[in-house]
Design a protein around this nucleic acid. Structure first.
Lengths: 215, 215
DNA sequence: GAATTAATAAAACGAACGTTTAATTAATTC
DNA sequence: GAATTAATTAAACGTTCGTTTTATTAATTC
């Protein structure tokens, strides 16, 4: 047999990407064979090579598009306001929403970096660094404006990103907590962690960190 | 050739473990071949099978001993005091010290879980859960005692652990920050995050989260 | 409706994999 | 110092891997 009735390159490529994200997230890139992937899509292994020249090209494509999507999402969500608290809140909300929606792709992008060639690894890390820099800028502006109080901008940014991305490890939709509840909790943890002051109004003094920012 | 002069089972086994942790952390479990591991140790691949019946047995041994070490370390570091702030500080300090000292082994234990059989995965996860439960207990006791203020004990525990373990991703000894500086920063971020009150003394009231606890 | 192009199947290639078997030598025991 | 045990090598086994080649059919073009 050869070309099958109703076959369509675009549909097949989309099916390959989707199946690949799911399989690599579940088994790992090295453990997933091209034959396994082809079987999941419902084609022969050779058909995959019409869309992706090598297995690594497939991985790189998935990762690059994930990172591009993350940068685009933040560009769209970035608030016009200059207020560091508003900007930090937007960053946290966008980060958590994006990653919960793309648990599998995030897993792939975070865990399979070592399977990329040096050059491609550099490309992905460049995008990641650009994204992290956005957070560092918000934190630095916040410290300079007196809105945040923290030890070290770089260290705090890394801690926050690890904390937020970690959501995908344990969060399962439809369990005890809703996405909105999780996001609200992470937002208040973030604001306390960066020592955010109450941005407006004249709240009564407190010895407690918990109500530093009303959310 | 056969047995080589000066060869010693105990030394070889130790060399295998050490090389395996390093190689698996760098390449990933699936990507590391037994021949590669043997070459790193300086023996033939067949020699490895005197010490570990299968590749997976080797992985499981490394993971189990890592987790046992973590639980033992916490047992040794656990303070006698009942004060939640003291206990939380001890937990954070022990966690960071242990993981920075064992970056490679931590990487293996966190990233290669999917290569374990179902039964062995369960064993490792049981140990991990027991360790996490210690933190949840501290947080719950702290909330009940009025020392902490947070939304959700379980969620906060996961956020803290992800944040702290994330240290191994970016921290490199001998760079900008010392282990002591990093630990101090993480400690103060933790205390702010959990909304810790000033445990003793009569510090002046503040609208800021940053000085909730003197560290 | 013939010619062309797109999408696939089927089969094979050489390399590498985890593991086993058998032989060999160093160290230890008695 | 002979017998035994521990530690290892060398070679091979069957399987699976990523990938390539070739043939075949569906869809599209003119």
């Amino acid at each position: 047999m050869a070309r099958t009735t109703g076959s369509d390159g675009e549909k097949t490529e989309a099916a390959v990407r989707e199946a690949a994200v799911s399989l690599i997230a579940r088994l790992g890139y090295e453990a997933m064979s091209m034959r396994q992937l082809a079987a999941e899509v419902g084609v022969q292994a050779a058909a995959l090579y019409r869309y992706f020249p090598t297995k690594e090209d497939l991985l790189f494509t998935l990762m690059r598009e994930h990172m591009e999507g993350l940068l685009r999402a933040w560009d769209a969500a970035r608030p016009a306001s200059a207020d560091p608290v508003t900007r930090l809140a937007a960053y946290v909300e966008n980060h958590i929403a994006f990653h919960i929606e793309r648990r599998h792709a995030t897993h792939v992008s975070n865990m399979e970096l070592r399977s990329l060639s040096h050059e491609r690894l550099t490309q992905i890390l460049k995008m990641r660094t650009a994204y992290e820099k956005e957070l560092r800028t918000i934190l630095r502006d916040g410290v300079e404006a007196g809105a945040f109080e923290l030890d070290d901008t770089g260290l705090t940014a890394m801690a926050l990103i690890q904390m937020m991305t970690g959501v995908i490890v344990w969060f399962r939709p439809g369990e005890r907590l809703s996405i909105a509840e999780v996001t609200a909790s992470y937002l208040s943890m973030t604001m306390r962690l960066v020592g955010a002051t109450i941005s407006h109004g004249t709240a009564p003094p407190s010895r407690r960190a918990g109500n530093a920012v009303a959310l």
